[in-house]
Structure formats: C-alpha cells, structure tokens
Design a protein around this nucleic acid. Structure first.
Lengths: 203, 203
DNA sequence: TCGTTAACTGTATAAAAATACAGTTAACGG
DNA sequence: CCGTTAACTGTATTTTTATACAGTTAACGA
C-alpha cells in the first residue's frame, strides 16, 4: 500500500476516529470545517488521494459514501485470500476474493482467511473450498497445521520439525509428505491455522 | 428497553446489517427501496419509532445520521448448543454452552450453532467437536445436511426423501443409514446445516 | 364503539452533500 | 529550469437526503 504524506495520515486518522465516534463517515464539509479549509474541494481531493492509495473507497453519488479499506478500520472482518500465484505475497490484491464479517476474536487472532485448494488435508476435515482462518504467527509447534511456502508454492500441511529437518505432512494417504532441509532449501511460514469456516458447499 | 414489534425488529436488523456491510448507515430512501415502501415517510416513521424506543439515535439535519444505541451494536452472536438430552427442545437452556460472536449473515441465516458429537459425517468433513451453523428451516432438499430428531435423539445426517420414505445418510462407512417411514415413525426436522465452524481443535 | 397505535401511501420542499471547473503556491527531483 | 505533485482557494451546480403535512387501513384494548 502506497505511503501517505503526514498531512494525509492526519486526515485519514481523523476520518477513522470520526466513524468510530459518530457511527458514520464525515462529509466533505465536515472535513473542511474540522481542518479549517476554505474550500470543500480541499476535502474532496484529499479523499480522492486516500482512495487512490487504497486506504478507503468512495461510493459516488452517495452522502457520506466513505468506506474504509479493510485492515485500516477496526474490525470490518477478515480478508479472504483465494488462489495465491507463485511468487506473489499472500495478501496481494490479485489474490483477494473479498471480505467476510468474521470477528477476529472468534478465532485465536486470525489475520486472514485462506480458500483451500485440493484435498491433501481431507482426513483432517479440511476440504477443497473451505476457508482457513490463519494467524500470521510464524512459530508453529509440532503437530499444528501451517500455511507454508515451498518453492514459491503456498501449501497447507501439518508441521513437524526435528532440528533442521521439516516435514510438511498431508492428511490424505494419496499425498506424500514434503520434506524440507532448512540448510539447503527455503521455506517460508505464512501463518498458523487457527480455525476453519465452511459456508454453503454442502449442496 | 421497550420491546420491538416483529416488523420493527426486521427493520432494525436490516439497518445493523447495512452498517456492517457498507460501512455507513442507510438513508430513508434506501430503507424505502429495500422494504418496498412507496413512501419515504414509512422509513422515516420507523426510524422515529426505533429512536423513541431507544434502539438508535437520529441526528437531525444530517444525511445518514443514524447511530445505533450502545449494546445493540455488535449483535450478541449465535447461541451454541451442546449435548441435547433426549426429549429436550434443542434450544433448551440446559443444552446451551454459550454464545459466539458470529455474524448471522456470515452463514445463510443461521439461527444457532450445534456442537457435533460423533464421527458419522466424517467424510463430509464434519468432525467431532465442530460447530455446525444451523438454520431453522424445515424444508430440506435431497442431499442437504439436516439436523433431525428421530426417537427423541438429535442427529446430523444427509437428507434423502422419496415419497414417505426418508433416508438419513451418514458419511462414514462405519455407520448405517437411518430409514424412516413417515407413515409409521415420527421424525422432526430441527433445521438445515448452512455452515461449519472449527476453532482450535487442530492442536 | 372509540381512541390509540402500527404500518403504511402520496406529495412536496428545503437543506445537506457531492462534485465539477478554474486557479494558486510551494516543495521536490531530474 | 521545468514538470509534477501536494495542498490548498473560490465558485457553482446538481443530486441526495431529511423531513413536513395530509391521509388510509387494520389491529387491539378499554
């Protein structure tokens, strides 16, 4: 996400605060008054800039049509990450399917939801299409299920580490464990699975 | 706090939902459109009533000037139902484990969460200890997973009906289908499964 | 049977809000 | 030195939005 100038930061903070205290976003005129602008257009162009940089969304033709981008606001739910392309960061825009109104407290500190691909964890009750609640904690204990990246591919497996030898274990006899020697191969932990969500998908 | 009429409840819920999804409160016109009123005044007077009863505050002269009263804001979430004793209604106090902050809209109109016992639906990715989001709709289609009560026992199975013959199918070869002839046996549908939630349980 | 309330229809209108267009000034980078 | 961008001023003009006023219908309790 593109950096904000100090002034922009100031304005963005104020908008956030305003939503939190009044329950709805401010108008251009309110922004103008609060910052002492002599023109509503000062507010307008600031909003446009914040929108362009991805910090909020403007719904045009709508009074107070300001929606904070997820992650910047309070709760707003968790981002849903779909197919992650090789080499892409996991929260890349291209991989984002949207947002779901999930309380972060429902799961133990989940940071995002990951759409499951494939059946390699079937016997752990994790099916294709399920959403995994993932916390970005990178200190898995043996036996926990992790989201890891090996050879630029994102995979969900059960974590077993013995010294520099890591086994990423599937839970489906049709799949083979992925063995990684930390001395010679790269492995990045994207997070630890802390919950599962399935909606519809039952027929 | 004064009680709301069913219609008022409906409208209040919708407003809450709207704020959650769009990030700002609705206008009178939006309420009008959504409920099919032919007059904006219908929306206006509903809002006044909700304000009078203390469920929200109206800021006059302000576009979208609706603020939810504290406490009504979040939604208490859904009740978690644990072991249901034979003969007890499913939402009996004795069976209640508590509440979880789950947005009703996350699942398609879930009314409560049911703690899964046993492994009879294992191959559908439903494991012991999971929470099923259940809607109290009693019109399952074939292939859907239902919460039913046979011989006073609550069970979760896949629904197949052919005339007066109902098969409640497990998804685990270790279990047998429950066959019910509606002419001779009683069967009560408690609801349809619309989602699944698993928290922790991975170690 | 009558007053009251919920739940609306129908019509207007003033105020609030978004937003376009045309400038200005100062800082920064090449 | 020049183009670009941030950060504004100033003015106008639609749209949105809130909200008043005048009714109607059906249900409910006294």
């Amino acid at each position: 996400m593109e950096e904000l100038s100090p002034r922009q930061k100031e304005i963005f903070q104020w908008i956030r605060e305003r939503i939190a205290t009044t329950g709805f976003p401010p108008t251009r005129a309110e922004l103008q008054a609060s910052f002492g602008f002599r023109s509503p257009n000062a507010a307008e162009s600031h909003l446009r800039t914040l929108a362009r940089k991805g910090y909020l969304f403007l719904q045009e033709g709508t009074a107070r049509g300001i929606r904070l981008a997820a992650g910047t606001g309070e709760a707003a739910g968790l981002p849903v990450v779909g197919r992650v392309a090789a080499g892409q960061p996991i929260l890349a825009e291209t991989a984002m399917e949207g947002f779901l109104p999930v309380d972060r407290e429902l799961f133990a500190g989940a940071d995002f939801l990951l759409r499951v691909q494939g059946m390699s964890m079937r016997d752990a009750g994790i099916l294709e299409g399920d959403l995994l609640a993932v916390s970005r904690r990178k200190d898995p204990r043996n036996g926990q299920i992790v989201v890891a990246r090996v050879d630029n591919e994102v995979t969900v497996k059960r974590w077993h580490q013995d010294g520099h030898q890591v086994s990423l274990m599937p839970e489906n006899p049709d799949f083979r464990p992925i063995m990684v020697d930390l001395r010679t191969q790269s492995l990045e932990i994207e997070g630890t699975v802390v919950g599962l969500l399935r909606t519809g998908g039952f027929l």
